[in-house]
Design a protein around this nucleic acid. Structure first.
Lengths: 190, 190
DNA sequence: CCCAAAGGCTAATGACTATTAGCCTCAAGC
DNA sequence: GCTTGAGGCTAATAGTCATTAGCCTTTGGG
């Protein structure tokens, strides 16, 4: 349904620019050329709009992570691929990622708990990748927890400043940031 | 004036936990044991409360940065000290830093423009530190802009997850993250 | 051609909110 | 002892908002 998609897209952009609380149904309606109340012919509620955006985002991120990591057994290569997927998603879907990171407070139960669980799972995957590298003697960091937080935060930063028509291409950012990650964990060359 | 300080502290915590928009004057009042309207005997407005928090935060951050950097001429040492100050501030004043990063949208002109200018200045300082290291042949990165973004984002991440009673001490986080930064820019040993 | 449903609209509902007005109390200095 | 100002309070003001109700138009399938 094209209209519903338009509405979700408009909501996404407004949530990014103004925040969930500060965005009114009338704003979203105006962005697609209708009045606020007419939105209810297409969506259940404002909260539902946010929940759908955040759920889709976290599920896509987890799916991409699994795919990225599946192709290799080498700890360095696995972390590199996971970081590439992470950063690429945050550049390519910067609005979704931005809202996904910043509007958790706007979610009401049970959505909030579900999203937090998915986030925790995602974070754990990264921590395990770092731990695997340490166990194999390939990474050299004091705290795997700190290193994985740092890696995740780098991606989130991307969603805050990346712009498709900026001077840096998506690939340039992805490759640079993957390098940063491997340097950060002190990955030794093979 | 102790009461005004209490109010600012209560507002800071509520803005962190619920966000500026979602926090009501009645909430802030309740946190200090009075009713919403009574707050106006101590503060000008809710907006003023936010503006004061953000302005103070950015000014402190800039002042600490200047002090940190002043003590050395060596590019590596300067970047290390700047990162230490950056991360330490984000750990020690995590509420201020958190709100400072996330509630810019809630600011109204002319506060918004002023804060954005201070942030831009802060970002520039880091980019210049990285550029200085590159020029001296001590750092090895493709894009100084990307590297400085990464460094700044690391600090912001800290303000999102750091906890004083967590397993990691402030010093541990500061030192680890400073290491991360120097690794990230490919700083060569002297 | 008809008519039902899809998708608009305006008006109403029921909250909630920042801020102001106006009043009351109480303590400290005279 | 009085009074004045600081700092509370409640009630009123003037919004804003999500959501629902009820109505109208269009349109596409029979």
């Amino acid at each position: 349904m094209s209209r519903s998609d338009d509405i979700r897209a408009a909501a996404l952009e407004l949530f990014t620019r103004q925040g969930y609380e500060a965005t009114t149904m009338a704003d979203i309606g105006a962005a697609v050329g209708i009045r606020g109340p007419s939105l209810y012919k297409h969506v259940a509620s404002k909260q539902d709009l946010l929940a759908q955006i955040m759920t889709t985002t976290m599920e896509e991120l987890l799916a991409l992570h699994r795919t990225a990591v599946a192709g290799s057994d080498d700890p360095t290569e696995r972390l590199r691929r996971a970081t590439e997927a992470h950063v690429r998603y945050h550049a390519r879907h910067r609005l979704e990622a931005f809202v996904g990171n910043r509007e958790i407070r706007g979610l009401v139960e049970p959505h909030r708990a579900r999203i937090l669980a998915l986030r925790a799972e995602y974070e754990n995957h990264f921590r395990e990748l770092v731990n695997a590298g340490i166990a194999a003697g390939r990474f050299h960091v004091t705290s795997a927890r700190l290193a994985s937080f740092a890696i995740l935060d780098l991606g989130m930063g991307v969603s805050a400043w990346y712009s498709e028509d900026g001077e840096l291409s998506e690939d340039a950012v992805v490759w640079q940031y993957s390098d940063f990650t491997l340097r950060l964990v002190g990955a030794t060359e093979l």
